[in-house]
């Protein structure tokens, strides 16, 4: 499913006449099926508001732009948001804070039961087992446990299992690695990559971590003051260092070093992923001589 957003405008406090703060200002963007799409920007730049539109948690107001996702027209009054949310999964910041059920099984099954009430018990069990195993937990060990007895990292995995259990085609994640330690972060990103190769066709990832964006995203957009400033490959969006710094953002490590090297006449021209960057540098410093 393709995501097509046109002139999306949204302001908080519609009711107040003094023109509430504009959270989104004529945002237009197309995200193709299959992309691993990154969104960066300072806190308050509108990126969270934007992604919440993608599964109808914030509705498009009249004459304030349009969103089409696959065949869903989110501006249409008759749009079936439940069907949409089944296809567009959403992982919030600190998703473990949404756990509520008595057992891990019940919590993960929650979404499934909401979206597919007709599903048989057996099928539900299969799907839940699959989701829990996918996020790297031992199904037989955790299924009857209370989610609240688990460790912080395990809770987050359960919460993510609760989102992917419906096999969404588009997965939207808002700062999913916040608060994770390095190992937890690495595991999580590996899981995300794995999902992207399975049923998740498109990933939309909001992150403050520029290294994550340059490493994993095919394309990304920079948000600032409710507008999209730049869209493109990591190479494109990290080309203008001064602009990024003026927005309170920074360069990923690879781009930072490339920039410094270019002043000394070295242009490794990597795609900014770590492995490619190392390869290109080796060509530059060792390869030529060998």
């Amino acid at each position: 499913m393709r995501i097509e957003v046109k002139d999306l405008t949204y302001s908080y406090e519609q009711s107040s006449k003094k023109g509430g703060q504009v959270a989104l200002d004529k945002v237009s963007i197309t995200i193709e099926e299959g992309e691993f799409f990154g969104i960066i920007g300072q806190t308050g730049s509108g990126k969270s508001t934007f992604v919440q539109h993608l599964n109808g948690l914030i509705k498009v107001e009249k004459d304030r732009g349009s969103i089409k996702i696959g065949e869903f027209d989110l501006t249409d009054k008759k749009c079936d948001f439940k069907a949409l949310r089944k296809k567009v999964g959403m992982v919030f910041q600190y998703p473990e804070h949404q756990l509520f059920a008595e057992t891990v099984f019940e919590d993960v099954a929650f979404g499934l039961k909401n979206f597919a009430p007709e599903m048989s018990e057996r099928e539900i069990e299969e799907r839940v087992e699959q989701a829990i195993t996918l996020v790297g937990l031992d199904y037989s060990k955790v299924k009857e446990k209370s989610p609240f007895e688990l460790s912080g990292g395990q809770k987050r995995r359960v919460a993510i299992a609760g989102v992917i259990v419906t096999k969404p085609e588009i997965l939207v994640l808002d700062e999913p690695v916040a608060g994770l330690d390095p190992a937890g972060k690495k595991d999580f990103l590996a899981l995300l990559k794995k999902l992207h190769k399975m049923f998740v066709k498109t990933v939309v990832l909001v992150s403050h971590d520029m290294n994550v964006i340059s490493e994993h995203c095919s394309r990304a957009a920079i948000f600032s003051a409710g507008k999209i400033l730049t869209v493109g490959t990591p190479k494109d969006i990290f080309a203008n260092e001064d602009e990024l710094i003026s927005l309170g953002l920074s360069l990923p490590t690879t781009a930072f070093i490339e920039k410094r090297l270019s002043h000394s006449g070295i242009n490794p021209k990597s795609n900014l992923t770590v492995s490619d960057f190392i390869d290109k540098l080796c060509e530059e410093f060792v390869g030529g001589k060998r």
Partner: peptide, 13 residues
């Protein structure tokens, strides 16, 4: 990263 960039530039020269 600052130090790495410096060292690489020094190496180049």
């Amino acid at each position: 990263e600052e130090r790495l960039a410096e060292e690489l530039c020094a190496l180049k020269s």
